[in-house]
């Protein structure tokens, strides 16, 4: 009995921590949606692009770890700059579905560029954090929890707190919130829309880089990251598109539910149900609470 309970705890905690990885991807999504009401479908591609660039800098040019990270972050700022200038600004007055489709195109461009520049083979990314159970926890609590999972959880927590403080207490955050509320009114009182957009896209790029490092250390830096990042979409639906805590809670729910289902129900169906379980869960949420747990109620004007 105790062992079963321990096993369940292990599955649950593992799922929750793995869920923070989805949260990290979803976070970039929320940042952009909050500031510009744009569904950035290319967030997954940004994850892939940034971490492949990071690996490329480190492995092809032998640039040290920290410098490579900074370079990759700068590259994401450049991507944000180009996106703002060449995609978002011309589509300022387009409908949200049009912008969404343009970001699908942007995702394709980023994936293609990354592969053209750094090749298609799977790269190993070593962060110096092993993906194996932490001995101390295994000995004392009898739970096998990977060090990488714990790191991902910590990194996610730090980023959330940082972003929360940024949004709540700084002038930039105030500007961001103003733009999110009403872009037209915000620009009429002198908030530079261009800079805000650039800032948000760069921040989303850096978040993508961090998420990519976590994913890359676990599964290798490869194209499949884009598909994994798609799972951020059900996370967003559960948490709400415009809520940072929502992204976290949504990620935790998805991570926990898919692991528990996979371990306890999966074997009856030949496994691999975690491929679709998050999406079906998202459908149930859509039917009962379309705005997500923390989202604002969707009001459409006729």
């Amino acid at each position: 009995m105790v062992e079963e309970l321990l096993f369940f705890m292990e599955v649950l905690v593992g799922g929750l921590l793995a869920g923070t990885m989805y949260s990290l991807v979803a976070l970039g999504f929320v940042l952009i949606f909050k500031a510009s009401a744009t569904f950035n479908f290319s967030q997954g591609a940004m994850v892939f692009f940034s971490v492949l660039a990071f690996c490329g800098f480190m492995q092809d040019f032998n640039i040290p770890f920290v410098l490579a990270f900074i370079l990759a972050a700068l590259l994401m700022v450049v991507v944000g700059l180009c996106t703002e200038r060449f995609v978002l600004r011309p589509l300022m007055n387009a409908s949200e579905d049009t912008v969404l489709m343009a970001t699908i195109g942007l995702g394709y461009v980023l994936e293609g560029l990354a592969q053209a520049a750094w090749g298609v083979e799977v790269r190993r990314l070593d962060l110096g954090i092993g993906d194996f159970p932490v001995p101390w926890i295994a000995d004392n609590l009898k739970l096998f929890i990977s060090a990488l999972d714990i790191t991902a959880g910590l990194v996610a927590a730090i980023m959330i707190i940082g972003l929360f403080l940024l949004f709540k207490y700084t002038k930039i955050g105030l500007g961001l919130r103003a733009v999110a509320d009403d872009a037209g009114a915000a620009s009429s009182i002198g908030i530079p829309l261009k800079h805000i957009m650039l800032l948000v896209w760069s921040a989303a790029g850096v978040v993508a880089l961090v998420a990519g490092c976590m994913w890359g250390a676990r599964a290798g830096v490869q194209f499949a990251l884009v598909d994994l990042a798609l799972k951020a979409l059900p996370v967003l639906i559960i948490g709400g598109f415009s809520s940072i805590p929502g992204a976290i809670i949504g990620g935790l729910i998805i991570g926990a539910v898919e692991k528990v289902l996979e371990v306890y129900i999966g074997p009856f169906f030949g496994g691999a149900i975690e491929g679709w379980a998050p999406y079906v869960l998202a459908i149930f949420f859509l039917l009962y609470r379309p705005e997500g747990l923390f989202g604002e109620k969707i009001i459409r004007r006729v």
Binding site: T98, G112, L113
Partner: peptide, 19 residues
């Protein structure tokens, strides 16, 4: 590389058409 370029062009065209 050719298939990557193809992807870039498809994505780019998508953006251009949307605009």
């Amino acid at each position: 590389i050719i298939s990557s370029i193809e992807q870039v062009i498809f994505g780019g065209l998508m953006i251009i058409f949307m605009i």
